[in-house]
Structure formats: C-alpha cells, structure tokens
Write a protein that binds this DNA or RNA. Structure first.
Length: 199
DNA sequence: TCGACGATGACCT
DNA sequence: GGTCATCGTCGAA
C-alpha cells in the first residue's frame, strides 16, 4: 500500500461525484495542538453546486456562509447543523463553482485515544467516527477550521492504493427537501467497513 | 429585529 | 420505533 499527500489541484477537478467516489479509502489526517489523528475515509456525499437542490449554494445562492464554497477546491467548509453538530466538507472545483464533498464517516487509525477523549467515550466502537457530526468531533475540527486548506500541515489527505475497498453507491441522507435531487446516487461508502453511518 | 428550520446524534422504550 | 436538545443562518418584515 503506497501513500501520497493530495495537492489542491486534485480537488479542483470539475467532477465532484467522481472525486467523492475516489476519496473512499483515502486517509484523512488532522494535527490539532500537535496531536495527530487519522483514519481511512469510508463514506462521502457529493454536493454539486448550483444544479443541486440539496446544496447550500444551489441556483447560485451566495451568502456569507456559502461564500467559502465558491473558492477554488482544496479548502474546508465547516458549518453548524441543528445547533449542535459541526459538519466537515471539502470544497472542490474551480473558483465560482460551488461544489463540495461531505465526509460522513471514516475508520480510525492513528490517535484513537485523542479521538476517544474528544468524543468523551470510554472505548472504540462504530459510533466514534460514523456520522458527519461525529467525524468532525473526533478529528477535532470546528468552525475555526472553516476555509482552511485541506492540503496543509494541520489538515491533509493521503492517496492510498487499497485493494480491499468495495464501493457502493446510494442516495444521500437527510435531504428529503431536495425533491428529485434527493434521489441522486451521490453517496458512496465502503461496503466492507463497519464504520458507515447508514446502510 | 425576529421566527423558522436544518447535509444530526444520543438516549429512550 | 420515537423524541428532543440547541443555535447560527437566512430571508421576511
């Protein structure tokens, strides 16, 4: 298994659905207060800018919150949901094209003790890092990391060559309001992993 | 200003 | 299966 750190150019591709699929099996790292945590991404969702009713920036909606999504790919979009949960997205595509990938789950690898502490949990189980709110909390991410690069020494992603991945596609979670776009198969997960929020 | 509501998760039965 | 905590953002007034 080889590893390569992804560069911003990787995230500036125009095909967010392809990128979301590719990220399954890649490794996400954060280094917060010199504590390194990492894991293998097991679940993602694609949000395709203005043509996607589920995306915050659909129809070119431009507000203070969504402005970060219009930046060139390779930075984080983190926002608060239900007043409680921070959701971690990666902005993709070129400047002006507001695409993003939501990271919904990963499989813990390094720094599990730090993640347990952040999540106030006694031991490792599936709920540590499945579900987008849990992902951000385990990695130590919050809205202070909004708009920061995901190709930096604080947050980065490594390409891996992992043959045991079996990718399944499905509809996205929690976006019933998006009408026909709610049916798009833009959620991807690794079938062989336990660390997936919904099957 | 203000009211409605959400890309959820934890805990209960 | 169901309930509910909890608050920033947005758009209407």
């Amino acid at each position: 298994m080889t590893s390569d750190r992804l560069k911003p150019k990787f995230f500036q591709s125009g095909n967010v659905v392809n990128l979301a699929r590719q990220l399954i099996g890649y490794k996400i790292y954060t280094k917060i207060n010199s504590q390194i945590t990492s894991g293998v991404i097991t679940e993602t969702e694609a949000y395709a800018g203005q043509n996607d009713k589920a995306c915050h920036a659909h129809l070119g909606r431009f507000t203070k919150r969504t402005s970060v999504m219009y930046e060139p790919g390779g930075i984080a979009y983190i926002y608060l949901c239900y007043g409680i949960h921070h959701l971690f997205n990666i902005v993709t595509n070129s400047k002006g094209n507001a695409d993003a990938i939501l990271i919904r789950a990963f499989e813990p690898n390094l720094g599990i003790d730090h993640m347990l502490k952040r999540r106030s949990k006694p031991k490792l189980d599936k709920t540590l890092t499945s579900g987008p709110g849990n992902v951000s909390q385990a990695l130590g991410l919050n809205k202070n990391h909004n708009k920061k690069s995901v190709c930096s020494d604080e947050i980065w992603i490594e390409k891996t060559d992992n043959p045991s991945i079996e990718i399944t596609e499905s509809t996205r979670i929690g976006i019933d309001y998006a009408e026909e776009d709610a049916k798009l198969p833009w959620r991807f997960y690794n079938k062989t992993s336990k660390f997936v929020s919904v099957r």
